[in-house]
Amino acid sequence: MLLNGVAVGCIYGLVALGFVLIYKATELVNFAQGDLLMLGAFVAYMAIAWWGWDYWLGFGLAVVVVALFGALLDRSVLRKVIGQPQFAVVMLTIGLGAMFRTFASVTWGSEIYTLTTPFDGKTVIAGATFSDQYLSIVVGTILLCGTLYAFFNYTRIGVAMQATSQNQLAAYYMGIPVKLIFSFIWAISAATAAVAGILLAPVTLIDINMGLAVALKAFAAAVLGGFGSIPGALVGGIVIGLIELFAGRFLPDGFKDAAPYVVLLLMLAVRPQGLFGSLGRKKV
């Protein structure tokens, strides 16, 4: 049972990771993150259920398509609003999210779909039985985070991405192609959302609104972890997932959805910089 909470938390964590990556680099908050998750799930569904592709092929296709879409989004739309007031960006991304949902309902219909995955069975580890669906989410998250960690720390372009988000102007001076890096970060962030969507698909089923609730809670997770901290986003996600689980089990009906936000409010009152946030100061 604990695993279910952790698994759902991992999904929040992945989406929160997407928020944080984009925020750190471009100082934009992408409220369409949840809808990218939804698009990922739908593309995978289309490839697997309609075209009869293999699960993993569909998985790969969806991740690549959504990643490219994220990069395109950056190039064509969001680059134009950098430097505009935050509010404009918030409205723009919320609007984009609504457009994606409309697009999805026109393309794939507004029914609820089930994605068949290779993870239908159960695994027994140390006497406890786990559902493969949830297990796949946790394992997938760990793998993805490991890959991203290695990428950001050990590859030239990964370190350049860190550099760009720490100091954009200086990155320009180093000859780092900042605009390209931004598109790349959008692609990674969108791909993370797509992975989250596909992993989540067997649990919540696919419909056009699947991203909304997830994104809202992931946003809470990102804030909880200290907006701008990558480990914070993941821990925040898992904390939110567990809170939700325990609230659903031990508290009266309806508290399940409210509990994460109550915790978030408490957190903001007690430690506004979040779990892992830091109040950095620039040296002069």
Binding site: A160, A163, Q166, A171, Y173
Partner: peptide
Amino acid sequence: PEGREVFPFLSVRENLRMGAY
């Protein structure tokens, strides 16, 4: 640049490597 503008969370070595990007 004025005010140095180093990458604060990268190590000195990584900063230098970025210079040679």
